[in-house]
Amino acid sequence: MNKARYTNKIPEDRGEVIKVIEEVKKPVKVMILGGVDSGKTTLAVFLTNELLKNGFKVGVIDSDVGQKGILPPGLISLGFPEKVFNSLEEIKAEKHYFVGTITPNQFFGEMITGVKLLVNEALDTADVLIIDTTGLIHGPGVELKRMKIEVIQPEIIIALQKKDELENIIRPFEKKAKVFRLKISENAKLHTREERRRIRREKWRKYFEQAQEYTISLQNMMISGTWIFQGEEVTKKEKEMLENLFKWIIFHGRKVSNKYFVVKADIGNFPRNFNKNTLLTCDFENLSNLIVGFIDKEGFCLGLGILKFINFREFTAQIITPLKKEDLENVVELRFGRIRVREDGEELGLLSREAL
C-alpha cells in the first residue's frame, strides 16, 4: 500500500548524509526536497532507520498530503518511531494538522502552518527531525518550498534531482543551511496517476474500515474551513427571492458582509448568470461524502470524518469516523476539507477552495 519501503540498497552518497547528521549540533531539522517519484519518502525511511539504529531519537513529519505514508491522507502528520520499520505506515502519529485535500494548490497557508506547528512540537523531543515534502517543485511549488524553508529554517536540506530542477529553490539557502544535492536513485519507481489513486483508495479504505456513524450537534461547535455558517442567516424574504430568481431550492443561506452564500439544488438544467462578487453558491450534493477534520483545543486534528448529511433545520450533521465517542468529547471545532471520499476509499472529486 506504500510506495516507499526500507532498503539498504541505496547510493553511497546517502551514507555521507548520515555522517553529517550525526555530527551536527542537536536538535537538527532535515528537509527533503524532490519532484514526484524522486525517492523522497524512501530516503526519509532510510535516514530514520539508520539514525534509530545509532541511538538517536528521531521525529518524522510527513507533509506529502496526497501520497501520505503515515495515515491518513489529507493531513500533515508527526510521529516518533521507536524501532526499525519498513514503511511510514507503521508509524503511529503523535499529532496531525488538517489540510483536507490531497494537493497543496490553494492551500499554501495550511501547508506552511501545519509543518511549522508540528516542528515546534517535535523539537522538544527529537534529536533529529526528518521532514518529507510534496513533489510540487515547479510554478507555485517553488514559492511554497521557499516559504516553508524560510519558516522552518532547516539546518540540512537534501535535494533529490535529475539535473538542476531544484536550483531555484535551494540556491538562496546555501549560506543558511548545509545543502546536499543527491542524484535520484536508479531504483526509484515511476507511478501513474491511476496507481497513485489506487494507493490512496486503499489508504482511505483502511482508515475508515472501523468507522461508526454519529449524529453531531453543531450548535456549540466552532465551524471552520467554509462560508456556510459565517455571517447572518438570510431572511425568509431573501431566500424566496433567490429561489424564484434562479429556480433553486435553497437549504441554507448566509449573508456575509454584502455577499450572499447559499447551499442549493437546481430546479431544471439551464444556465444561471449571476455576479460572483455578490453571490456564491454550494451544491447541496457536494456536502455529501466530504472529508472533515475534528480539531482539538490546540488546533491539531484528532482524526478525519466523512460528512454524510447536514440537517440545517436541526443544526446537526451525520458523520462517519473511526474516532471513538470519548475522542469526540475533546473536539472543539469541525473543519471542512475539499475532497469527497466514500468509506470504501473511492475518491469522488476535489472541490475548489471557493466551493464552500
Score class of each variant (00 low, 15 high):
141 G>F: 06
81 P>N: 09
62 D>F: 03
213 E>F: 11
341 V>D: 07
198 R>M: 15
110 E>S: 14
237 K>L: 10
277 N>V: 01
178 K>L: 10
272 R>M: 03
69 G>M: 00
121 E>F: 03
153 Q>N: 14
157 I>F: 07
352 S>E: 14
8 N>Q: 14
47 L>I: 14
350 L>H: 13
4 A>H: 00
202 E>P: 01
70 I>A: 07
191 H>P: 05
248 W>M: 15
123 L>F: 11
232 E>S: 11
295 I>D: 09
296 D>W: 02
259 K>E: 13
271 P>K: 08
220 N>Q: 12
34 G>V: 11
101 T>F: 11
257 S>F: 14
105 N>P: 00
76 I>D: 08
287 L>K: 07
63 S>V: 02
149 I>T: 04
304 L>H: 03
16 E>G: 10
198 R>E: 15
138 H>G: 02
319 I>Y: 10
219 Q>S: 15
53 K>N: 14
349 G>L: 09
315 F>E: 12
79 G>T: 08
198 R>N: 15
3 K>C: 08
77 S>Y: 06
128 V>A: 00
131 I>F: 05
237 K>V: 14
113 T>M: 13
254 R>K: 12
260 Y>D: 05
146 R>T: 13
323 L>K: 11
125 T>W: 02
261 F>W: 09
323 L>H: 09
144 L>I: 13
122 A>P: 00
173 F>Q: 11
177 A>T: 11
132 D>A: 03
311 N>M: 04
313 R>T: 12
35 G>A: 13
222 M>L: 14
67 Q>S: 04
238 E>A: 12
233 E>P: 07
261 F>E: 03
62 D>Y: 05
339 I>M: 13
218 L>D: 06
213 E>R: 09
115 V>Y: 03
17 V>F: 02
290 L>Q: 01
114 G>I: 06
295 I>V: 13
293 G>K: 10
4 A>T: 09
18 I>K: 04
338 R>F: 12
9 K>E: 13
300 F>N: 05
54 N>G: 03
339 I>H: 06
168 N>H: 10
127 D>S: 04
14 R>Q: 05
28 V>C: 14
179 V>E: 03
33 L>V: 04
30 V>A: 04
40 K>V: 08
44 A>Y: 10
293 G>W: 09
159 A>D: 02
276 K>A: 10
274 F>N: 10
328 L>T: 13
42 T>Q: 02
179 V>I: 14
342 R>W: 01
312 F>C: 01
230 Q>Y: 01
38 S>I: 01
53 K>V: 13
356 L>Y: 14
185 S>C: 06
94 E>C: 08
160 L>N: 08
34 G>F: 03
354 E>C: 07
181 R>G: 01
309 F>W: 04
110 E>P: 01
200 R>P: 09
